[in-house]
Simulated scan of single mutants.
Amino acid sequence: MKNGVQPTHARWTGMVPVDDTALAVTDTGGGGVPVIYANGHTATQGYWRHVIGGLGAGWRHITYDMRARGKSRRSADYSFETNVRDVDVVLAARGVQRAVVVGWSYGAFVAAYWASRNPARAIGAVLVEGAQPHDWLDAAMEQRIRKLFRRVSWILPLLRPTGLTPRMSADQIATSNIELGKIARKNVLGPVLDDITVPARYVVASGASFGSKGDEQERIRASLDEVVERNPNIKISAKVASNHDHIVRKDFRAIADAVREVAAIDRGRR
């Protein structure tokens, strides 16, 4: 930035190599505040188009497909830690020093961890229907997850050409979900959220998600009351009517508003 003017960057789409794979990345360019988006567990970067449209002009949007999702290539490592590190890889490849990080579902956990570890680089974080500390994983739930993905394993190869499912096996997807359950535990995620020193805003949905039963999702969301009570940097920006799976498409305006809010707080601090 020179004389308070953000340099303008050209639009770019391509592959960013990392470890044994390469990530499909899109950078809209421009001179606005950079926003990087972390996807849901099996989602692709295309899911963010409504949020990007809702924000309008004046922002630099960086989207990417996680390993084996969308147009990104397969990898030998689908661990949560690789996904957190890949945020740094994408930003470095695009020459971005500071950004708002926005994550939905699985991506909200990625965004929370990245913001907690990078206070000098995170303008703020918007956590959409995820990063809620709750001990929801036990032996019975683990079996349920594995059973669910074994049951749908036959259809995964059929859906891959459409981009609706990752190029991962059913067992790999189940293992990744189970790992997330361990990361979501109060004694694991709680300290991460407590360490966030940049403005962070939650956007939460109502109702259930794929694979959940009864009021499971609402009990998980209730954990945020303690989070915002402990950390004044974190607030719930909105609770919207749509459910977990449809929130990015149906309530994109609430997500866009939360992005504007954290960026405005950052400007006020500088």
Rank of each mutant, 00 (worst) to 15 (best):
D257K: 12
G214H: 08
T8K: 09
T8E: 14
P161S: 11
G214M: 07
R167E: 07
Y113W: 12
A76S: 14
A68L: 07
R49N: 12
R267V: 15
D195S: 15
E179R: 13
L164R: 13
V84L: 04
I236N: 06
S79Q: 04
A200S: 13
L23E: 07
G130W: 02
K71W: 08
D135E: 10
G46M: 10
G70S: 08
L224M: 11
A131F: 02
F80E: 03
K213Q: 13
G181M: 07
T82G: 00
F210G: 05
A93R: 06
R67G: 08
H244M: 06
R160I: 12
A241H: 13
L91E: 05
L224V: 15
Q172H: 03
N83I: 00
G40H: 04
E129P: 04
T63F: 06
R49M: 12
K71P: 00
I178H: 08
A174P: 06
P157K: 09
A38L: 13
V110M: 08
R73Q: 12
V87W: 05
L148R: 15
L180N: 11
D215F: 05
R74W: 00
I36V: 15
R267S: 12
G190H: 09
A24H: 15
A264R: 14
L180Q: 14
V192L: 10
L23C: 06
Y47F: 09
R73K: 14
T8D: 13
W12P: 04
P157S: 14
R85Q: 13
I220L: 14
